[in-house]
């Protein structure tokens, strides 16, 4: 840079101005990341991380739409005991999540062509809770849970 001075300095004002602009933009991204995390977009709690849907007649599912790799997540399946007390997880679900614990313990669990079917003893309506641990990262992996005749599918995101 030409200056009426003896100062020899390897500065670059144009670069510096460009850098400051990019820096402020990146700060904006930092703010977006924080807002997204608060909304649950990064998993581990928040509106976007856990979704609650009615999956059919007498079936409600609260599932981890966005989870984190190796971080416990929770699934709750509410069902009308008069219609069915069986929950079947497909292979995609079982490959994505390890089912760490089911509350209450299922009366039985059997292998099926689709995956694993668990039967629960229930008096009237009930909710079964599952502690899940994602086995690997996933981007929109389609998984399926069948409660009686109702098939519930969702796209699972597991962040690394």
């Amino acid at each position: 840079m030409d200056r009426p001075s003896q100062l020899i300095l390897d500065d670059d004002p144009d670069f510096q101005r460009r850098f400051w602009r990019v820096q402020r933009f990146v700060w904006g991204l930092f703010a977006l990341v924080i807002l997204l995390a608060l909304a649950g977009g990064a998993g581990a709690g928040g509106v976007l991380a856990t979704r609650h849907v009615k999956a059919g007649e007498g079936v409600e599912v609260r599932f981890p739409a966005i989870a984190r790799w190796r971080t416990p997540a929770h699934l709750a399946v509410g069902f009308d005991a008069e219609r069915s007390t069986e929950i079947e997880f497909d292979h995609a679900f079982l490959e994505l999540y390890a089912i760490d614990r089911a509350v209450p313990d299922p009366q039985s669990a059997e292998l099926t062509r689709r995956g694993i079917r668990m039967s629960f003893s229930a008096d009237g309506g009930g909710v079964a809770y599952f502690d899940l641990v994602p086995r690997h990262p996933a981007l929109g992996r389609r998984v399926s849970i069948r409660v009686g005749d109702e098939d519930f599918r969702y796209q699972a995101f597991v962040l690394p």
Binding site: R3, D10, F19
Partner: peptide, 21 residues
Amino acid sequence: ATWLDGRPTLLIFEGVIDTHA
């Protein structure tokens, strides 16, 4: 190298403070 390490920034030149910098 410039993007990773940055460059020096003049804060005062010939006694004049660069308030913007």
